[in-house]
Amino acid sequence: MTVTKAPTEPPAQQRTIRRPGDRIFAGAARGSGIFILLVLAGVAAFLISEAIPAFTASSEEIPGGEGLGDYVWPLIAGTLLGAVIALLVATPLAVGIALYVTYYAPRRIATALGYVIDLLAAIPSVVYGFWGLAVLAKQLVPFHEWLDDTLGFIPFFAGPASTTGRTMLTVGLVLAVMILPIISAIAREVFGQAPALHREAALALGATRWEMIRMAVLPYGKSGVIAGAMLGLGRALGETMAVAIILSGGAGATLNVISNSSPSTIASNIALRFPEATGLGVNTLIASGLVLFVITLAVNMLARWVVNRRADFSGAN
């Protein structure tokens, strides 16, 4: 049957489609991919067409009266700051959790522990918001003061420390908790799939557990971890309700993450302003949404570039 094929051709990828079943299936798969592109094009077209009035309007008409750039810039700063804090905190933690669940935890309870972490993904963002406001922010007030006292010379902790704890730092930590299950679930999946032969070979050569993980598991799971981190970053950048509830935002761009005057984030600003916005205000908000879109695009390009510099892992060989 298939032995007639030219031996130089790699078997899996470039096989020509012959059977009707194959044709239909491949067509459906391809169609789904194209459909996704169409949806995205639809969203982009919608964003652009709604944002154009804000780009063409004179700067006095934009809310704030200083033009679109001045309106959006602090929001960009806030969005990036919160997401970066979240990613810096969540990624190492998530990798640790994934390793713990896959290779350290007692076998019998490992699966259960996996569920427990997934539970974090089950909590709606409104609840994160109210928890962050009512519980976490208050608990973190002494920590803010300590940061201000001891690390105040670093611009990030310049202070004055917030008395309510509703700061960019708290938001970053809440976002970190929110994206933790996303990153750790994917990391867990790829770590668990690391080839048993490689692992056993490493152990057989006398490697300690950590050396085995470093040599056989981490290289294998790297692209998965990055993919997970990007998914998490996407969520952190676009998170709306939790940030809107917790953050005491609305100030200009600043690196200071512990004062009560933080810049808002793009998504939370849209949520806070949209219901009461009219006319050009709506266009301005949608223009800021477009900016968020572009930021995600840029971040993903960067991440893709990082991942693609390494050889693609597909299959176990």
Binding site: L37, L40, L233, G238, F293, A303, R304
Partner: peptide, 15 residues
């Protein structure tokens, strides 16, 4: 598709 799916993960829910 790979690239734009990544972009799509960043669409804010309100958008």
């Amino acid at each position: 598709i790979t690239f734009f799916v990544d972009v799509m993960t960043g669409i804010p829910s309100i958008v």
